[in-house]
Design a binder for these strands. Structure first.
Lengths: 202, 202
DNA sequence: CACCTCATATGAACATTGTCAACATAGGAG
DNA sequence: CTCCTATGTTGACAATGTTCATATGAGGTG
């Protein structure tokens, strides 16, 4: 009664509320009805905008992916210089951003990469996190900072290891403190002249 | 009425049935009640053996972890020889087994490493998949097959990348065909004398 | 302005689910 | 045999996702 969502803002409002709820309780404990109740709206009104509860959650998952991508974009924006040091800082910074997202937004991470949100197979024209990683690797290669001959192996390998480390963090298999060790190991394995100290970036 | 579970086999039977259901529908679509119905048992009987639905699912998740570990153990048993080639075969075989499990048992993998089953932080006395990976790495190191100086970086790195590749497969972000490329890249990055051909193992 | 129409919200209802408390019973210990 | 404990049953409750018929408002058309 009081507020009427007849202006089409309900969809957005529901995604926002669902996002907030996912952040605190995790996607599995989110209820359509309680979202509707918080918004002072009938439960069935959701079905004018979403086919399904999962459909709403997929929208939230897309927000999660966007949030991750934004964190990575911020890292790139923070190191605009075109120097070898900047290239290394961008690379390590991207990895750190990915892992920080997993730590800060555990529940959102789980939804975004969970069973509900079907991630589409990566494509050449991707502009998200994967693309940012590969172009950072291209940068490193251009400055000849990578060990010789390994460039082509790194796309999948760096992606998998970073994503894997993120899920290990999320699952609690590994403590947040091991992020530094991970980044350092990555640098030692990939850079030509050895380690990038943990303190070098942030 | 007909069959009586008064011999204590209900718990095991429920885990078995739940495991079967998880395999086909995924953990999120299994219901306590339907499991009980299939077993011709009252829904509430479950609560004599499990605190919770999640408690039952955790038991299923433990089965998943055991199944993964068994696959890896089988690989080790298949390469008992103590030669450099055997060491490399064991290493690649372990990775392949991990990824094959993710592909074959997607739903079980998702449950085992999902939010419901809290994986305990890895410990030195672990005897599961992680331990098998690290001892395989020790083997490689003993035969001096690893690039110099990288041994200590590989524990976390190999684990994270393999687990990450597995989750990428499960999420559909990467097609099953890329497993070979992944294993090959891993070999090129880790072994001292370059690539291990995809056909070399299996 | 009046009207109509479509997108949107509501209400009541349904089936299903997890969970619980009170009760029944089986089967071994004494 | 008797009793006790572990195990299974019955019936109920609240919450959830979903649907359908209905109401209502907003915006364009006459």
């Amino acid at each position: 009664m009081s507020r009427n969502y007849h202006h089409g803002a309900l969809a957005e409002a529901m995604v926002d509320q669902a996002l907030a709820d996912v952040r605190v309780q995790g996607a599995e404990h989110v209820s359509l009805r309680s979202i509707a109740q918080t918004l002072e709206v009938s439960p069935s009104s959701a079905y004018n905008h979403f086919a399904d509860k999962d459909d709403l959650l997929r929208a939230v998952g897309a927000c999660g992916l966007a949030a991750l991508d934004e964190r990575m974009a911020r890292v790139l924006a923070a190191h605009p210089t075109d120097s070898p040091d900047a290239a290394r800082a961008r690379f390590s910074g991207l990895g750190r951003a990915y892992l920080a997202f997993a730590i800060d937004e555990t529940h959102l991470f789980q939804l975004t990469f969970g069973p509900i949100c079907a991630v589409q197979e990566i494509s050449p024209e991707d502009t998200g996190p994967y693309n940012k990683l590969t172009t950072a690797l291209d940068d490193l290669d251009r400055w000849q900072l990578l060990k010789p001959g390994i460039r082509s192996d790194l796309d999948l390998m760096v992606w998998a290891s970073t994503h894997g480390m993120a899920t290990l963090l999320v699952e609690g298999a590994v403590p947040p403190e091991s992020v530094d060790a991970f980044i350092d190991s990555m640098a030692r394995l990939v850079f030509i002249e050895g380690a990038l100290s943990a303190a070098e970036v942030r």
